[in-house]
């Protein structure tokens, strides 16, 4: 087995192990909640029998460890359990027992798809934009253009997302009604309309992530400009743009790819605030809502999905940066 595939397999194994431990951490954290859902939903005047019945139905009467493995086993086959809040408690009082409540997986699936759509639109805008800006900033380094972009990107990266969101709403939705300020997305919306309604949150996220990618691109390229082969390309009489795009950029790809993957990870996990501002029906909003009503299976599942996406993209960044290093790809 070549060394590079061994390294990649190692990283994969490490990622799976991390995910496993993270799932334990999440499970334990959630089960630290005082009182359980049965008491919460029935309130003060609950009879012990009713509490016991709900506990039994939800499996809360078992110990921590069997419950964990039950949950984990379910997760592995795509069964994330039943949402407490939407559970059909009518069955406990004996009426209307045939109505089925949506499972967590059913609740999460459309939300997750919406979040992926938002992240995809953002990435489609942010990645080309930040690469272009980064290359331009490296090309015209220390000029007025470089300084102005530096100030702007630094400001946008350090502002809270809701500030950027409200500024965009103010100028693009309220003062000049170009885009809708609420992302009212539902099934069966034509693609164009859906894109328009997603554009404002996507622009907010673009402002939040572009800065770091652009600064990294600039720094990675400028780092290489002192190398002898760049000097050579310059002495051959190539134009500055060509020196940077064909000679410096390919060698600067590793850090750039890493930072892009990290920012995509941020896009999937950092959407919570933006989704709340724009009432975008994504997984971030579902998470905040379920946190507020302490819907344990939903909180667990959302947390796990976020952590998995985060670990996966970090892993991708790791693997890609290994693959982009020719010394590792072609060992002596």
């Amino acid at each position: 087995m070549s060394s590079v595939s061994r390294i990649i397999l190692q990283r994969l194994g490490l990622g799976i192990l991390t995910l496993f431990i993270v799932s334990i951490v999440i499970f334990i954290a959630v089960n630290l909640l005082p009182g359980d859902f049965a008491q919460l939903v029935l309130g003060q005047g609950a009879t012990p029998e009713a509490v016991e019945a709900i506990r039994k139905d939800l499996g809360l009467d078992q110990g921590l460890i069997p419950r964990y493995f039950q949950w984990l086993g379910g997760v592995l086959v795509g069964d994330l359990g039943n949402s407490f809040a939407n559970a059909n408690f009518a069955s406990f009082v004996g009426t209307n027992a045939n109505v089925t409540a949506p499972t967590v997986a059913e609740q999460i699936a459309p939300r997750f798809e919406a979040t992926l759509f938002l992240a995809g639109v953002t990435a489609a805008i942010a990645v080309p934009l930040s690469l272009t800006l980064g290359i331009l900033a490296a090309l015209y380094r220390n000029s007025i253009f470089d300084r102005v972009t530096n100030v702007f990107t630094l400001s946008s990266i350090s502002s809270p997302e809701f500030f950027l969101a409200y500024i965009l709403i103010l100028f693009l939705a309220v003062m000049n009604p170009l885009l809708p300020s609420l992302s009212n997305i539902h099934d069966g919306l034509p693609f164009g309309e859906r894109l328009t309604r997603t554009l404002l949150p996507a622009l907010t996220l673009t402002l939040a992530v572009t800065a770091q990618m652009m600064r990294m691109t600039r720094a990675a390229i400028i780092n290489l400009l002192a190398s002898p082969y760049i000097e050579m390309a310059r002495l051959k009489g190539l134009s500055p743009l060509r020196v940077i795009v064909t000679h410096a950029l390919p060698n600067a790809l590793a850090p750039i790819i890493t930072v892009i993957a990290l920012n995509l990870a941020y896009l999937i996990t950092g959407v919570v605030v933006v989704e709340v501002v724009f009432v975008y029906p994504g997984i971030g909003q579902l998470f905040v809502d379920s946190v507020k009503i302490r819907d344990i299976p939903l909180v667990q599942a959302c947390c796990l999905i976020f952590a998995a996406a985060y670990i996966l993209l970090n892993l991708t960044a790791d693997v890609l940066s290994i693959l982009s290093n020719p010394r590792l790809r072609h060992p002596k």
């Binding site: 919570v272 605030v273 959302c302």
Partner: peptide, 23 residues
């Protein structure tokens, strides 16, 4: 620390805040 850093900060904070608010 590796394990704790594998969970996105804001998500983890929200999760723990849920528990804290109950406590």
């Amino acid at each position: 620390v590796d394990v704790l850093m594998a969970i996105p900060a804001l998500i983890f904070a929200l999760l723990l805040m849920t528990i804290a608010s109950a406590w």
